Amino acid sequence: MRYHIIAEHEDFVAIDKPSGMLSIPDRTQSEPSLKDKLMERYGKILTVHRIDRDTSGLILFARTEAMHQYLCGLFENRGIRKFYSGVVLGMPAKAEGLIDAPIMEDPAHAGRMMVHRNGKPAQTGYTVLETHPQYSLMQFELFSGRTHQIRVHMKHIGHPLAVDPLYGDGKPILLSSIKKKYHLSKSEEAERPMIGRLALHAFELNFTLPNGKDVRLEAPIPKEFKALMQQLRKISGN
């Protein structure tokens, strides 16, 4: 599984992580994580934040103690703006909004989170970029950093992320499910999903370095997200 270097600095490195790769080692050390791979390449690598295994996109690692302390401080004090793109089920009622709903661990399901009044404060801003009856493309901005925050919040408002096995139906998006006259080509034994993984991608980080320089990092929106929207536009005639 390959990763892409978005920015390489003497004090930090920014990576476009593929879906399915661990950001940092898990408790069992069962498989190499992105951090492990970066340590092989750079030597010293320090964890600043993480993104879910099934989420793709931007993640920052520090290369020095000073930058590690600085970046961690930015994350803790909302000094870094974090933007995600995602495909959700259905058509959200509002074109933009703020989901302000506390999140806590789900006591009935290990590894899952839930919205609950006793949870920790969590805020997610959203904008609907393109909408269709089956799926919509959205942009999110995180104003807090709770586990599975976007996934939990989108389930909370009735539009879970596509291909989410924890908070949605987990079903892959197939062209045959949106196109009436779909026929499998003779060279294919089975249909390949248009999107077969969690449809969430961390695409932008904005922050300021200690020297006052503004940094804007971007990991391109996955081509499969764009391809799905293109197909939906064709089907709707737009």
Rank of each mutant, 00 (worst) to 15 (best):
S30D: 12
L74A: 03
G119Q: 06
E105M: 00
P121K: 10
I173M: 07
F12H: 08
L232Q: 15
I103E: 06
I80F: 02
I80Q: 12
L161S: 06
R233I: 00
L34S: 11
S23V: 01
P160N: 11
D106F: 11
E188H: 12
Q134V: 00
R41D: 05
A7C: 11
L209Q: 15
M229T: 02
N77W: 00
L217Q: 09
Y42C: 03
K171D: 05
H159A: 02
P222C: 11
A7E: 15
L22P: 03
V88G: 03
R197Q: 14
V87D: 11
G86N: 01
H4I: 05
S177G: 05
Q231I: 02
T208W: 10
L98F: 06
M194P: 13
F83A: 05
G170V: 03
P160T: 03
S30A: 14
I6N: 11
K181W: 05
G125F: 05
M229H: 14
G125M: 04
L71E: 10
M67W: 09
M114N: 01
D106N: 15
K44V: 05
D26S: 04
M1I: 06
L161Q: 08
K213W: 10
E105W: 03
K94F: 11
H49K: 08
K17Q: 11
H183W: 09
T124M: 08
V115S: 13
R63E: 08
T147D: 04
R41F: 01
P121S: 13
I221C: 12
A101M: 02
D214Y: 08
G90S: 09
K179C: 01
R50I: 00
H201E: 07
K37V: 00
L205D: 03
P107S: 00
Y70D: 09
S30K: 09
P121G: 08
D100W: 01
R216H: 15
D11E: 14
Y70C: 04
V88K: 05
V88Y: 13
Y70V: 04
I103Q: 07
M138A: 09
I150P: 07
S85Q: 10
E10G: 04
V163S: 07
L74S: 12
